[in-house]
């Protein structure tokens, strides 16, 4: 147990996209075994933060380390679930083929590039883990939104990750599936670190151990002074459900301090 080394460590990171500051002075540390959620308003930079952790985006300044490595070198140990809305819903692909993508880099057996049987077993197990074991032959485009979401979680699990990054796992999900997801994540958390993005604060407050409040500092539009009060207004009463074991500074930027793992 290298409990000394944080799974994710972000130092003084700044990121802007076309001169729009998305994230400013971000410091964040996620320790092994944590189950943390990133919350914040739409456009606040939540997905951007995930993509920086994955090395899909490069920070303008500051740095990101995952398992003490640059993100590009740590990717193999990360399972990632993107928002399914960004995928073509008409694409002809079976559920099992989607899940197998979790280890697509190992699809090299023989001339015809088949998957090793171990990967196929992992894929089936991952599907079973999200409760869709009997749908592997189905077509991805026949599934409901919630089922697709879970298939993508299974794909992330098929990567056999030590760190799981989930972008909006609760969107498009009905209350019963949400309950299942809650159980699944809690179970998975026993052997992997989980960081998820959610704006469903009811869900967050039930599941996660710590909450990371992400909000870009808007310097191009000085009229929108984003602060803790506005976040409360955006989220209404639900916001109170979140355990405030994190710190929001008064300017309300992306403000991440290492969170103490709550007892």
């Amino acid at each position: 147990m290298d409990s000394e080394l944080p799974v994710i460590k972000i130092n003084n990171l700044n990121f802007s996209y076309h001169n729009n500051v998305v994230l400013e002075s971000v410091n964040l540390e996620i320790r092994k075994g944590e189950l943390a959620s990133i919350v914040g308003p739409n456009g606040g930079g939540k997905t951007t933060l995930l993509k920086l952790i994955l090395g899909l985006l490069q920070p303008n300044s500051g740095n990101v380390e995952v398992f003490g490595l640059p993100p590009e070198k740590a990717r193999q140990r990360i399972g990632y679930m993107p928002q399914h809305a960004q995928l073509d819903p008409q694409f002809p692909i079976s559920v099992l083929d989607v899940v197998l993508m979790g280890q697509i880099e190992r699809c090299d057996r023989g001339f015809f590039g088949g998957f090793p049987s171990q990967v196929k077993i992992t894929a089936q197990d991952s599907l079973a883990e999200v409760g869709l074991g009997d749908l592997s032959r189905k077509s991805f485009n026949e599934l409901s939104g919630g089922q697709r979401q879970r298939v993508l979680i299974a794909r992330a699990l098929c990567s056999e990750p030590e760190l799981l990054l989930l972008d909006e796992p609760t969107s498009n999900i009905d209350p019963r599936s949400e309950e299942n997801l809650y159980e699944t994540l809690t179970k998975l958390n026993q052997h992997m670190t989980i960081l998820l993005v959610s704006h469903d604060l009811g869900f967050v407050s039930q599941v996660v151990k710590s909450v990371i409040c992400v909000n870009r500092q808007v310097i191009i539009h000085p009229t929108s002074q984003i602060n803790g009060t506005i976040i409360k207004e955006i989220y209404g009463g639900d916001f109170n459900l979140v355990r405030h074991d994190h710190r929001c500074d008064h300017t309300g930027h992306s403000h991440h301090d290492p969170f103490s793992n709550n007892q």
């Binding site: 697509i104 880099e105 990567s159």
Partner: peptide, 23 residues
């Protein structure tokens, strides 16, 4: 296509994910 069927499919379906897996 026979050789790279699955990889091509992965890239066409979700380019970003395929990149993350090192393709």
């Amino acid at each position: 296509v026979l050789r790279f069927y699955h990889k091509l499919m992965a890239i066409c379906f979700d380019e970003e994910f395929a990149r993350l897996r090192g393709l």
